[in-house]
């Protein structure tokens, strides 16, 4: 199938800008950043999620793409030079339309907690909807964070993930051209 969609207009500087947004999002959990505004993404992907994939994924890593994003598989294959893996449990990146079962993904080992999945989740909206309160590294004071589209039992599922620290899964939430990140080190209440 021909891949008609272009990637970053400037592969070097756009990737850098996207990475800095993700780095800042990860360092200051709950902060919302704009990325990928001008990117023409595959129909099912929002520009932010597409930009994160372009900026971080290549043939040296692995990505699992949820069947809901099947139309993005060829685009990822072409732009990132990686064949998506059919097995989510070994993937370094997981691209999903909603929060997958975190227990089914790689959470790293005690000696190598970095060998864990980063889940790029596409949510309905950031900055509105359910209110969560977060505390952890990166936050001077407990901070509230709002998102629409996370499951109702998100706080309980996150607590299970946070309990594994230093092992665990890190989330990058994307909605439209905005993203926020939730590293495993966070404790989250509310919902």
């Amino acid at each position: 199938m021909p891949v008609a969609l272009v990637g970053f207009a400037d592969p070097v500087l756009d990737a850098q800008a996207c990475f800095r947004a993700v780095l800042d999002a990860m360092a200051r959990p709950g902060s919302i950043h704009q990325v990928g505004g001008t990117l023409v993404a595959p129909a099912s992907l929002c520009p932010a999620a597409a930009a994160v994939v372009l900026a971080l994924v290549d043939g040296e890593t692995s990505i699992f793409i949820d069947p809901a994003f099947a139309d993005a598989a060829d685009w990822v294959r072409f732009h990132c030079g990686v064949a998506p893996t059919p097995d989510a449990s070994v993937a370094a990146f997981v691209l999903a339309p909603d929060l997958p079962d975190l227990r089914s993904l790689s959470c790293g080992s005690d000696e190598g907690p970095e060998d864990s999945a980063t889940v790029i989740v596409q949510v309905a909206a950031l900055g509105e909807g359910a209110v969560y309160t977060m505390m952890g590294p990166g936050l001077q004071y407990p901070r509230t964070f709002r998102a629409t589209g996370l499951p109702v039992d998100f706080v309980a599922r996150w607590a299970e993930n946070h309990k594994l620290f230093p092992r665990g899964i890190d989330l990058i939430l994307c909605a439209g051209d905005r993203l926020a990140a939730l590293p495993r080190s966070l404790s989250i209440t509310g919902g």
Binding site: A15, A55, L56, D58, E60, E114, D170
Partner: peptide, 12 residues
Amino acid sequence: RMLRRALLKAVA
């Protein structure tokens, strides 16, 4: 990209 992936995990 390799460095950036390592940096994100380092922050987490």
